[in-house]
Design a protein around this nucleic acid. Structure first.
Lengths: 207, 207
DNA sequence: AGAATAGTGTCTCTCAGACATTATTTG
DNA sequence: CAAATAATGTCTGAGAGACACTATTCT
């Protein structure tokens, strides 16, 4: 009875997933055995923190698989997926690596299948929920948000339509601050509306 | 490590769920312990067939819960939900009962929470997939299908809009047969398009 | 003929998608 | 003033929802 975590983040202009090296040449999803009297969520958090030293995580149960590895003994694995902001760079262990989701190494067991499903679900959720924000820091520009969507969906979006839709969805609000990057006109910073954040958090571990 | 199944069906004009009597006065979802080297799907089917002797089932993994019962030992439960056609009346065991989802008895453990979630998911899926057909027999009239939707969603729908949408979704097709009930004009019978059924089945155990 | 149920078409309004120009800042 | 990026509005077509009458069968 194990927990595995699919950890997604945006690094260097692409969507990436965190993998740990296996005993053979295959990589695998970070995982932990479920402790006695430990909840699934607690164990998933533990598996996450084993790799990344970041307090804020979006964590959601994905699917439960059976028969992943040996045929002799029952191997049940509950898989979660996690989203971390791009600025969460404080890595803990040194053995894992971030891989682009479109350029993966050979994977152990059925982890390729799991990852494909996690990616499908992430793309799907992006369209009907506010999950995209979980990959950005607390304040962000609309261009950054749009770029996040484009990277995950793998397609370009129209700037005006994107802004119209995201604004009238009512989940983000303006701040008075701007991002001065020195190049071009400074962009206004936005953040999630606190009550929208609350809604999302309420659904977090229990979709 | 147990499997539980939320079994929905339409009986007597309402959506119902199959429950088994517990040791106390509380009822519970049908369940089975996961056998060594048994897959989750196989065990869910077993739990289903323990109650109902019906070959065709729509079965889908719902969620995995931990810590349901005792605090001392780990209690993990993988929950599936099942849909059976209204004409599947061949019950096996005699102890369970069909309860209306809007009039439930006291339930054991966290089964009320599970059931509420299963119902939410059923309603939600109804809107974007062809899941409604799983509750009807192979051939059905559009009025029967609409009635199914109305009972599950708990609201009435416009007849013309319903027919337009369901027909142009392209998942059902006419047959040459009609349902003669003796009252009123006979209704044309429809069935799922075989290839559309294939699509749905392919996604069945792996949403 | 009457009761019962099946079956059908139109209009309006909202939302999604295509599309180009102006505005603000730095060097 | 040139370069870079941010910000903004309109038109068109498709789909959703409101809405009432005709058709077929049985007794």
């Amino acid at each position: 009875m194990n927990i595995h975590v699919v950890i997604f983040s945006l690094r260097e202009e692409s969507l990436r997933v965190l993998l740990a090296p296996g005993v053979t040449k295959r990589w695998s999803l970070p995982g932990q055995p479920l402790g006695k009297a430990e909840s699934l969520e607690a164990c998933a958090l533990r598996a996450f923190h084993q790799q990344l030293n970041h307090p804020e995580v979006y964590l959601e149960q994905l699917y439960t698989y059976s028969g992943g590895s040996e045929a002799g003994k029952q191997a049940v694995s509950v898989v979660y997926f996690a989203l971390v902001p791009a600025d969460a760079r404080r890595e803990a262990s040194g053995e894992f690596r971030w891989f682009r989701v479109d350029d993966l190494p050979p994977l152990a067991d059925n982890h390729a299948e799991i990852l494909a499903y996690a990616l499908r679900r992430l793309r799907y959720k992006l369209e009907y929920s506010a999950v995209g924000f979980e990959l950005l820091s607390e304040e962000f520009t609309l261009s950054e948000l749009q770029h996040t969507y484009e990277v995950i969906l793998g397609e370009t979006l129209d700037k005006r339509n994107f802004r119209r839709r995201i604004l009238q969805a009512g989940i983000i609000e303006e701040t008075n601050r701007r991002r001065m990057r020195g190049e071009g006109r400074p962009a206004r910073l936005y953040r999630y509306r606190p009550d929208a954040v609350a809604e999302v958090k309420a659904r977090r571990l229990f979709p």
